[in-house]
């Protein structure tokens, strides 16, 4: 039982991170009907920027942890947003009227280009980061097995929940979100009531990128290592999460992310850790076969 709860905690933490990345996939899909395969790279860049920010802060001698975290968060969200905006501008917007396949290929190209760009500028070696938030609490003990909840896990889960709540509110209640939903349902008509469709799409990319940056920073803190290739696997898993939840559905992405995180944690714990990715992607295959619209996605229902 204790072991189970421990895995539940680990799975939820991991799932929160996947969920944040998945939101970016699902929002972009909702608004322009395209899978942004460069999104995983955006997340990787977010992770790198948070490492760089941390090193810069350390070199100027700033050691107050909450402040360090806030600065890291803001810096990585900011810079990564710029990346998200730029990618949309140069790789997708010129292809807006082209067949979907063209945009998809452009996305894959962008993803490879970004990976190599980071590899060249930051080096191919793994970057390690000393733990910033350490410590934790022991929830309970059973048969000599301690169930531990680290402060970092609490931080990740709370930050994720706050961001997701904020985002849902933004999409449901603010003019910006309404504008996004309008573009998503009928872009032509949205333009005819005066919505700047191009800007709305850019905003969507920026929002997705900012969330991916948070995920990138959390992973950096959680695992303590980053390299230029982490975006691929995380990206594909988050994509799986988005499909599992129902691509285009915001709550679906959150739910899908959590489920993928849990599946991975439990599979690693009770079966073989080597096959955890196989388990995850088998889920993708099963979902595509038996429920192509995902858990929460009904065809043509509220999606952003």
């Amino acid at each position: 039982m204790a072991y189970f709860i421990q895995q539940l905690i680990n799975g939820l933490t991991l799932g929160a991170i996947y969920g944040l990345i998945a939101i970016g996939y699902t929002m972009v899909y909702g608004i322009i009907g395209m899978i942004n395969f460069a999104h995983g790279e955006i997340y990787m860049i977010g992770a790198f920027i948070s490492v760089i920010t941390f090193l810069v802060l350390q070199s100027v001698g700033m050691g107050f942890v909450p402040l360090v975290l806030v600065v890291m968060l803001i810096a990585s969200m900011l810079f990564t947003s710029v990346y998200g905006w730029t990618i949309e501008r140069i790789a997708y917007r010129p292809l807006r009227r082209a067949p979907r396949l063209a945009a998809l290929i452009s996305a894959i190209g962008m993803s490879i280009a970004l990976q190599n760009y980071v590899q060249l500028t930051q080096g191919a070696r793994v970057k390690a980061l000393a733990p910033i938030i350490s410590g934790g609490m022991t929830l309970f003990e059973q048969n000599g097995f301690e169930v531990r909840l680290s402060y970092l896990q609490i931080f990740i889960i709370i930050l994720t929940m706050a961001l997701m709540a904020g985002f849902s509110y933004l999409i449901d209640r603010t003019p910006l979100g309404r504008q996004q939903r309008a573009c998503e349902q009928d872009r032509t008509m949205a333009a005819l009531v005066g919505v700047n469709v191009d800007r709305t799409i850019s905003t969507t990319f920026v929002m997705g990128a900012a969330l991916a940056a948070v995920a990138g920073m959390m992973v950096t803190l959680y695992y303590g290592v980053v390299d230029f290739f982490i975006g691929f696997l995380a990206g594909v898993k988050a994509f799986t999460a988005a499909v599992l939840g129902g691509i285009g559905s915001l709550p679906g992405a959150m739910l899908g992310g959590l489920l993928i995180g849990l599946i991975e944690a439990f599979w690693s714990a009770y079966f073989t850790i080597e096959y955890k990715d196989v388990a995850t992607f088998s889920i993708l295959v099963l979902v595509l076969i038996f429920r192509p619209t995902g858990l929460l996605g009904k065809p043509e229902i509220e999606k952003v």
């Binding site: 309404r178 939903r181 309008a182 349902q185 009928d186 008509m189 949205a190 005066g194 043509e300 509220e302």
Partner: peptide
């Protein structure tokens, strides 16, 4: 007709005032 079919009637009119 091209409404925003998944929004409420009221929301359709509010989107039009989004500027």
């Amino acid at each position: 007709i091209r409404l925003f079919p998944k929004m409420t009637v009221l929301e359709n009119l509010i989107v039009a005032q989004h500027n």
